[in-house]
Design a protein around this nucleic acid. Structure first.
Lengths: 337, 337
DNA sequence: CTGTTAGCGCGTTCAA
DNA sequence: TTGAACGCGCTAACAG
């Protein structure tokens, strides 16, 4: 309960001026050794600690970065935030957290809150249904830089970190081809998703490289519900050409697809093999994990995004109209067992 | 880049005093309608927004609560923080995040950081190996209340929210007994863990209620590694009395145990059934999920913890030496399918 | 109804 | 080597 000591307090006790105390505590060169030690001594005794809120206020800088994510219970994001938080922490920054729960309005109010709290910068992964970006563009006026990652707005002048799905997809198809599969299906996500388009590109690309022709029937899409995935599976399994391997849009899709296949009495990894994109942790716990997963490095993305933001913050007012676009390559990881 | 307008600025333009502006913006009763509307009008035009850091500083209150968790990639904690964040958000508070990664030193520095940032209060789930609580007790001097949840220090005068494992364990054993099982094993965690002790109590209690006698051989413990769990399974399966059901310390243990059982050619849910404590999301994805899970309500715990903290913050300086101890009852949830 | 003054705690001129 | 004075933006006590 005892009030925390302030610089003034120390000054009074020592019969010196507050500025002397301030300087002494900062090891300012122009302070006599005696006074300096005297001040530092008493400061320690009293347990003096600078009032950060005063400093934030006065310096107009909070050493705080705001992080807005859709959903922390998604493994992808909870891993990503570890990367963010660790990097921030390492650089003496602090993380203000907000979840949009994939709701644009909520996202808006969070941006507002963060702006009010005077965060130095923002790291954002968009809510699924955000179509209006005004609440982000407005931040320019306040000179609050934003780095997006993973879910990125379609805007020209932004900083972002993302992971290219095409490379991983190529690797995935290559992997299946190497295993001898020739009829490889793909259960993609909704067509309009950029992530879906990248997957298609990778798929085609891999086939093309091997001079295999592309059969549009092998490309189906799911609305990402279980039912949607089951429907997609039904479509694939009804083809005359027998599909022996499937690239699934993500782990959820893969698990639903596996479930469907098992219901149809197909032997997983014998009659049909799966490859997926990692967003669940326990491939090694589930009985029939995908043979391999395309890894998107969420921790690394978080880390890169934070480093980028910190760079932006350091290069004071640089107004350099350069925009960071960091694109990692996804990578296939073959599951053991 | 244009400097944000301040109260002073508005005052100057309108040839009134800053305090008038301040009051007008706050709808103070003593301000004339004309001036009030005039001020509010210009404020809107100029896009005035109060500088929170100034207010924080002046009010000595930040509307920020610090949250320290071991690991966000644990589903339990990422769900918990949703409860925390949602509740905080609802009450105009903001969440400052820190992960200890189960490291006591890191935990300490985070506490320090949060104190410096002048959080109004703290919500903490302890790092696994934290044995020294000085960094938390010190907070009393700074008048920063702490509410612990789930992982709680052994200290007398603290606020906390926890979940009682005994009730859920009783329900779990009851459930198995009702299914006809008589030889029910338990793979517990390390003996010294409070959580383990509660589980044992529940186990014994359930048997006792049904006047069944307790066989100590049925109670084994795992160090929570896969190997440890396999060893525990080996021990249980080597017994002369054939174990037909097992209560596993948590989902990880359950999955490892299931894996072991399958290796030994046991039919899951036929030869042997499992019940577990929920800490993984996708029981319904894994091929052989536990029949039922003891739910610990992480979201609710986070919510309760936050509500408790906010209450503490509201009851200004109440110094009421009452300590909140909120204990939820865990509850068995039978998995569909 | 409105203006003046003061002060939150700190860093930073400018002067001595 | 030190001190006095000022200002960051805002609220509040005190006058009028």
């Amino acid at each position: 309960m005892a009030k925390l000591p302030t610089i003034k307090e120390i000054a009074k006790r020592l019969h010196v001026s507050p500025s002397t105390v301030s300087r002494a505590l900062h090891d300012h060169y122009s302070i006599g050794l005696k006074t300096k030690t005297m001040v530092q001594q008493l400061a320690k005794e009293l347990g003096y600690e600078p009032n950060q809120t005063a400093i934030f206020f006065q310096q107009n800088k909070t050493f705080t970065i705001g992080v807005i994510l859709p959903e922390l219970s998604e493994a992808f994001f909870s891993t990503a935030i570890s990367g963010i938080e660790d990097t921030a922490h390492k650089n003496k920054y602090t993380v203000l957290l907000g979840q949009s729960h994939d709701d644009e309005d909520r996202e808006k109010t969070i941006v507002e809150t963060m702006k009010n709290h005077r965060v130095d910068g923002l790291i954002v992964s968009l809510a699924k249904n955000t179509v209006n970006y005004a609440h982000f563009e407005m931040l320019k006026k306040y000179n609050i830089p934003v780095v997006f990652f993973d879910r990125i707005p379609k805007l020209p002048n932004i900083h972002y970190v993302a992971c290219n799905m095409e490379s991983g997809t190529i690797q995935a198809v290559d992997f299946l081809l190497a295993k001898g599969h020739r009829i490889i299906g793909m259960i993609n996500g909704p067509d309009k998703l950029f992530a879906s388009q990248e997957r298609v590109k990778g798929y085609m690309n891999a086939l093309h490289k091997k001079r295999l022709k592309y059969d549009p029937n092998l490309l189906v899409s799911s609305n990402l519900t279980r039912a949607g995935t089951h429907a997609a599976m039904a479509q694939l399994l009804s083809l005359k050409r027998k599909v022996t391997a499937i690239v699934a849009f993500n782990d959820y899709v893969a698990l639903d697809a596996v479930q469907y296949a098992r219901e149809k009495k197909l032997k997983i990894n014998k009659d049909i093999a799966f490859v997926s994109y990692a967003n669940l942790p326990l491939s090694n716990y589930t009985a029939f994990p995908p043979l391999a997963s395309v890894e998107q490095f969420p921790y690394l993305q978080g880390q890169k995004a934070t480093e980028t933001l910190l760079e932006l913050l350091d290069s004071k007012e640089d107004k350099s109209s350069a925009y960071y676009k960091i694109i990692l390559d996804s990578q296939l990881v073959v599951n053991k067992y």
